[in-house]
């Protein structure tokens, strides 16, 4: 882990939905190449937090600096930032009217203005990386959930992102497809990508995470390395949560 360069710096961040206080006084730093896994009960603000990291949600106060760019509502640099920060969604959100290859090339071609030939070459490279090069000409609806999610990962990678955010990437998948997606994520972690992952897959977390974050009711309750997090969490609430999801 390279402690020198912070990629994501969150300071005193607060977020409201109307009167609802969704994120409370969040402080978090993610360094280059670091893998952070965020877990916690549903409604604790995990997804909201990582959606703030690429401007899908806006915080109301505090500071958020990503790769040296200050993020706030109306920031001009937000589109450049989004090209650096890839996002993988729970529901895949592939473009259903485009083939797999077109899903991967449309961003580089239209946003980064890369030639079609070059975009396709990159796309095929990343399809290879996620182990589905043979599906390039199919439509998303012709693929299984696991394959669709791997296409979604490749779509983000095609933008040559420096940070990857995962918002419960395996929660919408049938159980037998979870591993093929997690395997791709583990391989991606090995390449040194900075990753922030919201997930309940604790096996994955143990294998990959440098830092575990536990959230509850809009607050970060615990930040610790995985050894300590899984064996001796400092907060009682976190211990209970782990007991519940690791019990079976």
């Amino acid at each position: 882990m390279n402690q020198a360069t912070p990629m994501i710096e969150v300071t005193n961040l607060d977020k409201y939905y109307g009167a609802f206080h969704a994120l409370k006084d969040i402080d978090l730093t993610v360094h280059q190449g670091e893998k952070v896994v965020i877990c916690g009960p549903s409604g604790s603000g995990k997804s909201t937090l990582i959606r703030c990291f690429n401007g899908l949600e806006w915080h109301n106060s505090g500071r958020l600096v990503i790769d040296g760019i200050e993020v706030y509502d109306g920031a001009k640099e937000i589109r450049e930032l989004r090209q650096e920060v890839g996002m993988v969604f729970q529901q895949f959100n592939l473009f259903p009217h485009l083939t797999v290859l077109e899903n991967l090339t449309i961003g580089p071609m239209k946003v980064r203005r890369i030639s079609k030939a070059q975009a396709e070459e990159t796309a095929r490279k990343y399809l290879e990386r996620v182990h589905i090069p043979e599906q390039a000409d199919k439509y998303p609806s012709q693929l299984s959930g696991g394959q669709q999610q791997r296409v979604a990962i490749a779509r983000s990678l095609c933008m040559e992102t420096r940070i990857m955010l995962f918002d419960e990437p395996t929660s919408a998948l049938d159980p037998e497809m979870i591993n093929e997606v997690l395997d791709v994520m583990v391989e991606l972690a090995d390449t040194g990508m900075t990753m922030v992952v919201v997930t309940h897959e604790m096996g994955f977390a143990r294998k990959v995470a440098d830092t575990m974050v536990f959230m509850e009711a809009g607050r970060i309750v615990e930040i610790s390395p995985p050894e300590q997090f899984f064996t001796n969490p400092s907060s009682e609430r976190c211990r209970l949560f782990l007991d519940q999801i690791l019990a079976h």
């Binding site: 690429n54 401007g55 899908l56 589109r79 450049e80 989004r82 090209q83 920060v85 890839g86 996002m87 969604f89 529901q91 959100n93 592939l94 473009f95 449309i106 961003g107 239209k110 946003v111 980064r112 979604a152 779509r155 983000s156 933008m159």
Partner: peptide
Amino acid sequence: TGQWEAAKSIGMSPFQ
């Protein structure tokens, strides 16, 4: 709405 979010997250402008 996920389509909007996916388009935004690869850096597309609202027009794109």
